[in-house]
Amino acid sequence: MKAAAVQLRVDADRATMIQRAARLIDAAAEQGAHLVLLPELFSLPFVQPEPDLDYFAHAEDPHDGPSNRMAADRSRAHGITVISSVFEATATPGVYHNTACTYVAGELRSLYRKSHLPFSNGFPEKFYFRPGEHPPETVDTGQTRVGTIICYERHFPELGRHVALDGGSVLAVPVASASAPMREVFQLELRAHAIFNTMFVLCANRIGTEGAKDYFGTSAVYDPDGQILAQAGDSGADELVLAELDLDRVTQRRHTRPFLRDRRPDLYAR
């Protein structure tokens, strides 16, 4: 199965960003991708260090907002899986979520609300979003099972492990990750998720400067050994990262490195 991560430079209005993302999804499908991942909140500028009341104007209905309408449309048109990320406005006034939506052939199969939220290092997400109440779930795409966690959640090994135990062969991680010192840690964490869960990891980040943030890109696809199959360059422009996933390697690695078999959950209760 071929998978693609979309790396975006968010430097235009929402309508323009949605059009650019749609063109990259089309290009990925034309190159044979069955799974396409967009960055965290791909169609709008990400939160800045200081809370901003005007930011709530970006929130949209996850079922009928413009970002997900495009994702569902491109998923349906190409018969592929598209993972979108939106600033979700709920029916309850004042309640918002940072939400990832998985579309398979145009059908919404999963709506995952970011359950771990930072309020540190210039990312005051708890000011804007309510944490989700449910763990990530895996989705059957027809080729494999995919689960999604969002950005900051890569710091929590329990979430990737949850996806693996739920039968996931691919962990999708939409992110908005900035600052040069974090780049090496970022890559180490994603490689670690791939290795100790023996699965592929697909990560899509932003690129370029937005206010006080300098997003470092490094969108990539990692194999179950933690090796980089494909990674975005440093041009600072929009980019598509594509790689072929040999899904049989997940099964093979789970036999030769049976970390899931050898777990001792009876020892982990505390």
Rank of each mutant, 00 (worst) to 15 (best):
S75E: 03
D73T: 11
D13E: 15
M1A: 07
L267P: 04
D248N: 02
A22I: 01
L245M: 01
D54T: 15
S169L: 03
Q19M: 13
P135E: 05
T92Y: 09
T99Q: 05
L247W: 00
E184D: 14
S179V: 08
C151W: 10
H255S: 05
E210I: 15
F216H: 15
C151I: 05
M1V: 12
R257S: 09
G211E: 12
I83M: 10
L202N: 13
D61M: 11
S177W: 14
G142D: 14
F200G: 02
Y215R: 04
T90A: 02
D246V: 02
A212Y: 12
E239V: 06
A3I: 08
S84L: 00
V175M: 13
L247K: 01
D73A: 15
T16I: 07
P224N: 11
A15W: 09
L24M: 13
T141Y: 06
R154C: 06
S169G: 15
E40I: 00
P39F: 05
S110G: 04
R145V: 10
E107L: 06
S110Q: 12
C151H: 08
P174R: 08
I195F: 07
H193V: 08
Y128V: 03
E184G: 14
L242D: 08
A3P: 02
P174E: 00
D64M: 02
D26I: 08
H116W: 11
D248H: 08
A212K: 13
S120G: 10
P181T: 02
A269S: 11
P51F: 08
T16E: 15
R14N: 08
R145D: 09
A27K: 14
S235M: 02
P135I: 08
A77Q: 11
S67T: 10
M182H: 13
H162W: 12
N98E: 09
R261K: 15
A57D: 09
A269L: 15
H255W: 14
G168D: 09
